[in-house]
Design a protein around this nucleic acid. Structure first.
Length: 535
DNA sequence: AAAAAAG
């Protein structure tokens, strides 16, 4: 176990996040397609064999890849049939659809995109109840990521997908899973969705419940490790179909002796916010993900990765370890959602931030507003400041109990909380309807973090606004965020783009050691300390 | 720095 874990970790080591690669994005796609950087089949087998000391025997692996080759041949003839049906000119039409929707694809024998849900029904026989659920929840037409990713997954192809914040990624993986699992079975879980926070897991779970109505599928989350062990253990009737969870809870169940959950019948492993879950290091998610990956040891298992940001090491990993992977990205990679109006405000100092935020609020604002800070401590401090200002403000971070967290999210969704102060906990995936302002009270430590944070606004085609405070101390990060803004068409002063670029080494260092900031405080020191203890 | 299991 330990050896394969180490290997899992090593796979991406040495591959660094390289911003230059994203700059000339269009060119890059073409270069890769022309030179066909696809790995030869032998290398894929070798790469798969890295996990040879796990339960999957190398014989099985070989047999598996033979089977997979057959599948892809079948798919090719399937596409030809489509061509015959639609007549000549079909490839041009497909190209045009992709171009119009900014869909970029890489890989072999990629299924055609579909522009309507009806087409999905006609060509793939998407179940009536799913179509009904789609209509009931109010999806009119597939978003670009759904147009391309859903057919790919319906063909049971492994996928790496990248699409802007708020552009419908969740439904893009939920719908094909629902279609393929059909109805309930008693094998144990057949699909697992992993996401980095409990709040995101809950949200995905709720969405899945809405979309699966009438299917009879049994969908679960892990709410309490010990209770879940009772529920899912080997001596139960295994009447479960889909599991939505954060990684560590699942790892906990897997590592019980005997394991309190079996994943040997999992047909779909979905890694949401994949770049986050691939994060390495003592405190990263990567080891946990490795354990889950290995536990899904069926020869039938298919995996799909989704995120709004694209990490080079995740791509490399997918090329090596997934079977004939398809890559789909919408628009240029690692760009902000372009429905968000972005703004940078120089505030001078910490006290300048308090003034600026009060000034912003005093001008009048439309709730709900989301305010991001850099640490739990600072979240508590800012809350102590704003609580007296007369708005309905609350604060969320991982020091709160789960019940508190649930209630705060509920309150914010219900409009009872106008201003929610949050750590990075709320940074990814969370879909609060109609957040029209995100304030980065503390400057995010990376462009990736910035893209996700501001992506809490401007969702599902709505407009959004993001305001980011910065002080002199934030100068090191200014350039990369200014770049993101400019790429999204937001005006940025030239001097920001001319700031000297950090070396890769230094950039990593700076990300790991965030700027030290003065306490947010107008109260006397000990009063603040007392107050913080209570929250 | 933050997040992720209970306890």
């Amino acid at each position: 176990m330990a050896t394969s874990m180490d290997l899992f970790r090593q796979l991406g080591a040495g591959a660094k996040f390289d911003l230059r690669r994203f700059k000339s994005d269009a060119e890059k796609f073409q270069v890769i397609r022309r030179t066909g950087k696809q790995l030869p089949q032998q290398d894929i087998i070798k790469a798969l064999d890295i996990f040879g000391n796990s339960k999957r025997s190398s014989d099985e692996t070989k047999e598996n890849s033979k089977k997979k080759q057959k599948v892809s041949v079948g798919e090719r003839s399937g596409t030809d049939n489509q061509d015959n049906l639609k007549g000549p000119g079909r490839p041009e039409k497909i190209k045009a659809i992709r171009k119009r929707n900014r869909i970029h694809v890489q890989g072999e024998d990629i299924p055609d995109p579909v522009e309507t849900f009806e087409e999905l029904q006609e060509e793939y026989g998407l179940h009536d109840d799913i179509i009904q659920n789609i209509m009931r929840v109010g999806y009119a037409a597939p978003t670009p990521i759904q147009m391309q990713a859903i057919p790919v997954l319906l063909h049971r192809r492994e996928l790496l997908a990248c699409a802007p914040t708020g552009s419908g990624k969740t439904a893009a993986f939920l719908l094909p899973i629902l279609h393929q699992l059909k109805g309930p079975q008693k094998k144990g879980f057949r699909a697992v969705v992993v996401s980095p926070t409990r709040e995101l897991s809950q949200q995905t779970y709720r969405e899945l419940m809405r979309l699966s109505e009438g299917s009879g599928l049994r969908i679960h989350t892990i709410e309490h490790g010990a209770k879940a062990a009772q529920k899912f253990g080997p001596h139960t009737a295994q009447k479960f179909d889909i599991l939505v969870t954060t990684p560590n809870r699942l790892v906990y169940l897997l590592q019980q002796d005997p394991p309190a959950i079996k994943l040997n019948h999992v047909e779909w492993l979905i890694i949401d916010e994949s770049d986050k879950l691939f994060e390495e290091g003592k405190t990263g998610f990567r080891d946990q993900l490795g354990i889950i990956y290995q536990a899904c040891d069926s020869s039938q298992v298919r995996r799909a990765m989704f995120s709004a940001t694209f990490a080079y090491d995740v791509e490399q990993w997918c090329r090596l370890n997934l079977d004939n992977v398809v890559t789909v990205s919408i628009g240029a990679r690692n760009t902000a959602n372009d429905r968000i109006e972005q703004e940078l405000i120089f505030v001078g100092s910490e006290s300048g931030k308090l003034l600026a935020v009060r000034n912003l609020f005093s001008k009048g604002f439309t709730p709900p507003v989301l305010v991001f800070v850099q640490s739990k401590e600072r979240a508590k401090e800012l809350f102590q400041e704003l609580i007296y200002d007369g708005y309905n403000v609350d604060v969320i971070h991982a020091d709160k109990t789960q019940t508190q967290r649930d209630n705060i999210v509920k309150g914010f969704r219900a409009g009872k909380i106008w201003v929610l102060i949050a750590t990075e906990l709320m940074g990814r995936g969370i879909d609060f309807k109609g957040v029209n302002l995100v304030i980065n009270y503390d400057f995010p430590t990376s462009a990736v973090s910035y893209i996700h944070r501001i992506g809490r606004t401007g969702r599902a085609g709505l407009k959004g606004r993001a305001v980011t405070f910065f002080t002199e101390d934030d100068a090191v990060h200014l350039r990369s965020i200014a770049n993101v803004m400019r790429n999204a068409g937001c005006p940025v002063p030239d001097y920001m783009l001319q700031i000297r670029k950090l070396s890769k080494r230094k950039k990593k260092l700076v990300e790991k050691n965030p700027v030290r900031r003065d306490t947010i405080r107008t109260l006397p020191k000990d009063e603040l300390r007392k107050a913080k203890r209570k929250t």
